[in-house]
């Protein structure tokens, strides 16, 4: 039982998915922002360590929301 596997199964942790480069471009274009404007997630965050994400990758997070059912959120992988 590794630490990462535990964290991914926990009720508090929503689904994390890494976006492909084209999906990332589409996202940034849709909101017309630079990557830096996205909220951040640490590179060594327990929920992304096994997604093998690099700096600058965008992580799509599908949260369970009491108001919207499912809410999609994006974070950029960062290290500071």
């Amino acid at each position: 039982m590794s630490k990462a596997a535990d964290s991914v199964r926990h009720v508090l942790v929503p689904k994390h998915v890494k976006l492909s480069d084209s999906e990332k471009e589409a996202l940034l274009k849709r909101y017309s922002i630079a990557v830096e404007a996205l909220p951040k997630i640490m590179k060594d965050d327990a929920a992304v360590v096994d997604l093998s994400a690099k700096l600058g990758d965008v992580i799509k997070i599908v949260r369970h929301s009491p108001t919207a059912g499912e809410a999609v959120f994006y974070r950029v992988v960062s290290n500071a």
């Binding site: 630490k3 964290s7 942790v13 929503p14 997630i41 965050d45 327990a46 929920a47």
Partner: peptide
């Protein structure tokens, strides 16, 4: 630290 930033937000 254990579960990540999204879990902390929910917490």
């Amino acid at each position: 630290a254990v579960l990540g930033i999204e879990a902390a937000r929910q917490a």
